[in-house]
Design a protein around this nucleic acid. Structure first.
Lengths: 207, 207
DNA sequence: CCCTGAATCACTGTTTCAGGTGAGTGGCTG
DNA sequence: CAGCCACTCACCTGAAACAGTGATTCAGGG
């Protein structure tokens, strides 16, 4: 008998999963919580085998709660649960000790399979989720090089649409100097032109 | 008696809302669908008063389905439903005839209030959602000009870091033509150079 | 049927960017 | 002190981007 507990701030998700699991013979509904506090409160006097945990609760609570839970109760297996296929969240969850991750639009069969898997110590990923994780690791595994403050300043001005001469005038430098910084930016970030540079900068929130 | 139909690709959400509504005396469960096709199929021989519709279904189906439904059955009120507080989606939904929008983590009370509101022709927004919409409209009040499909294609390739000659070779055009499209992009979006162009494109999610 | 607009191509300048190379200063650190 | 690195400046060359102008074709809508 697997005791399942759920933490999610969406009432409909709690209800839905309850409905999906209520006729499973080897699954017992341990309880539910709508936020981190009440989850931790439950585990003071009770326990469960598997916790289904929404990751994208307000304020990143999910990831933190996962860390706290695994520290206090390492025997409790945590299965991440989210509506979206977000590599970033998945990665953080796993770093904090989660045993797997499934999407909320998973089928009843997949949900049950995942619960069994993590309960017996396996790592479970729904297909799409595993893919997203790979994608994520491919695209941002590479550490961003450190940019000097001058470089970041100039990167910002380039993104504003200023040309080298304009930037030079604005911050009292030679346009040769601005050009040097610009070339260093391209080299450091491994891109070939302004378009790639700005795209990377915006997407990785360097500006 | 309000007949409520739900379209959502998440089984748990369907179950959850069903559970939340099943004891409401003046609400009748008209049916459910997990995708746009089966929703449209239902309405061939049946009808409903209010449709709860997930916006963020795979492939933007939600927004499109909303448009089709309102064209075919203008009397059916549509209430957007999503896990996230995304101004962009909300705006698109409303442009396509939706009567309101609530978050999936809304309480049972709010859900029922919203259903009654839209059924009687009102526009309903959950508090947070209204805020997000305002935020969104503030930040991008200036309407984005319409880009042709060719322009969007070339914008994407510029963002990938390709130069005009490379793009020309890639999509079998003259580099003059690519340059023309590029100039049109700059003109339409009101920017002066590639840096501004790409920044705008990434920030406004044109690519 | 005419007008509009997307899409295509062309030519000519000017400006900016990219690549390479080199060099001087000042600060921090092993 | 020697070495590293950020920051600064300089020049040269070729490639790309930007600006302006103009033209053709083709599809769709009033």
């Amino acid at each position: 008998m697997i005791r399942v507990f759920i933490v999610d701030d969406h009432p409909v998700v709690i209800e839905g999963i309850h409905a999906l699991l209520q006729h499973e013979k080897d699954i017992e509904w341990a309880g539910q919580a709508m936020n981190a506090q009440s989850c931790l409160g439950f585990f003071v006097n009770n326990t469960a085998d598997v916790v289904l945990m929404d990751i994208s609760m307000p304020g990143m609570e999910g990831v933190e709660l996962c860390a706290v839970m695994k520290e206090k109760y390492p025997g409790v297996m945590i299965l991440g649960l989210s509506s979206f296929n977000q590599g970033l969240y998945i990665k953080k969850m796993m770093e904090h000790g989660a045993s797997g991750y499934i999407l909320k639009n998973s089928s009843r069969e997949e949900l049950i399979k995942a619960i069994h898997a993590v309960q017996s110590g396996e790592i479970y990923f729904s297909g799409e989720t595993g893919q997203a994780l790979q994608e994520y690791q491919k695209s941002s595994m590479t550490e961003l090089p450190v940019l000097s403050s001058r470089e970041k300043e100039i990167l910002g001005l380039i993104a504003e649409g200023y040309t080298n001469p304009q930037i030079a005038e604005k911050i009292f430098l030679s346009s040769f100097t601005v050009d040097s910084h610009r070339k260093n930016l391209l080299a450091k970030l491994g891109v070939k032109n302004t378009a790639s540079l700005i795209r990377l900068a915006v997407e990785r929130k360097l500006i």
